[in-house]
């Protein structure tokens, strides 16, 4: 049974006279209890999906499609109903924990307010949060609450933000690039953190990341995004172990331990997308068909792939 169903989601931003197509016609389901990963390079539209789900995009974004949570369309909710979903059912773990914490408010207040709108006693909530903080490898959480965000280290801030997003036990956690901007050591910590969250928590997670190691470690299924489209979707071990789409292959090969072979070229301009397959300019397998026709998603051995030549591979 899928907890979250995304149907034909497209997001466009006006840019002067043009529009930037950030996300186009994305479909996927997130099943209850699973960890679903969205990977792709910077600017592929991953984070936009995450923010669009909670309607946190700037007002000028044009969003179309439907997002069904428990069968209820989030895009048709009134603001007050949406707030209930935001506070209670779906939580967002934002990228850049440093920016997500308000610099002039003490950590305690920022943790407490999570419970405020839900009618939960603050003290009870705080007790739970403190336990959670201990679990998430934060030492001395009581003391930490009386500090300001700038007095914490990057890793501590990330844990704190993680704790805020988890402490009201959401049904769905959207983690938006949790390892962005962290040094390798803190990144390892993040992998550990997420494995821990998954084990202790067992709730449904939507993990948006460009960190393939983290994705492989934590995710059950993965969608690969390129230029605002999903190009491949399958079990994590299959996508990252035996990638089918040329772009996923390139991503995997670009990993340091796989030889650090960079993908040549750049992703296309999102104002005027190329005809045919969006990846054909950079694709080493591309044939005549790839220039002419935009490939549709096709079922292939249980997974989905957007390529004309899946049989070749």
């Amino acid at each position: 049974m899928s907890l979250l169903e995304i149907r034909d989601l497209s997001v466009e931003f006006p840019a002067g006279e043009n529009t930037v197509k950030a996300v186009s016609h994305v479909f996927f389901n997130v099943r209850e209890g699973e960890t679903f990963g969205i990977i792709g390079e910077s600017g592929s539209g991953k984070s936009v999906i995450g923010l669009a789900l909670l309607r946190l995009l700037p007002a000028n974004a044009n969003i179309s499609g439907a997002v069904l949570f428990h069968g209820q369309d989030l895009f048709s909710l009134r603001p007050s109903e949406l707030r209930k979903i935001r506070g209670k059912c779906i939580s967002l773990m934002p990228q850049n924990p440093a920016g997500a914490l308000n610099p002039v408010l003490k950590n305690r207040l920022q943790i407490e307010e999570v419970f405020e709108e839900r009618g939960i006693d603050k003290k009870e909530g705080m007790k739970k949060s403190l336990r959670l903080m201990k679990k998430l490898l934060l030492k001395d959480p009581e003391k930490l609450c009386d500090l300001y965000p700038h007095q914490l280290s990057g890793g501590m801030r990330q844990r704190l933000v993680a704790c805020m997003s988890l402490s009201f036990e959401p049904e769905l956690l959207i983690a938006d690039e949790p390892t962005k901007g962290l040094d390798p050591e803190a990144k390892e910590g993040a992998v550990e953190l997420f494995t821990k969250i998954k084990k202790e928590y067992g709730k449904t997670m939507l993990l948006i990341t460009h960190d393939l190691d983290l994705a492989l470690e934590v995710c059950d299924r993965i969608a690969v995004m390129y230029a605002g489209e999903i190009v491949e979707l399958d079990k994590a071990s299959k996508v990252l172990g035996t990638p089918l789409h040329p772009y996923t292959k390139g991503l995997v090969r670009a990993q340091p331990r796989n030889g650090l072979v960079p993908l040549s070229g750049q992703s296309p301009s999102r104002i005027s997308l190329p005809e045919g397959c969006l990846f054909h300019e950079r694709c080493r397998y591309s044939g005549i068909e790839c220039f002419r026709k935009h490939p549709e998603m096709k079922n292939h051995k249980g997974g989905w792939i957007r390529c004309h030549f899946q049989s070749l591979q």
Binding site: R83, R86, S91, N96, L101, E113, M164
Partner: peptide, 25 residues
């Protein structure tokens, strides 16, 4: 700012976001 977006994601109503998070900054 991002912390305003995070405050929204926490489900806070607009007046609390303005008076608590935005005003002081």
């Amino acid at each position: 700012q991002e912390y305003i977006r995070f405050a929204k994601a926490k489900g806070l109503p607009l007046w609390k976001i303005v008076s608590r998070h935005a005003l002081k900054n």
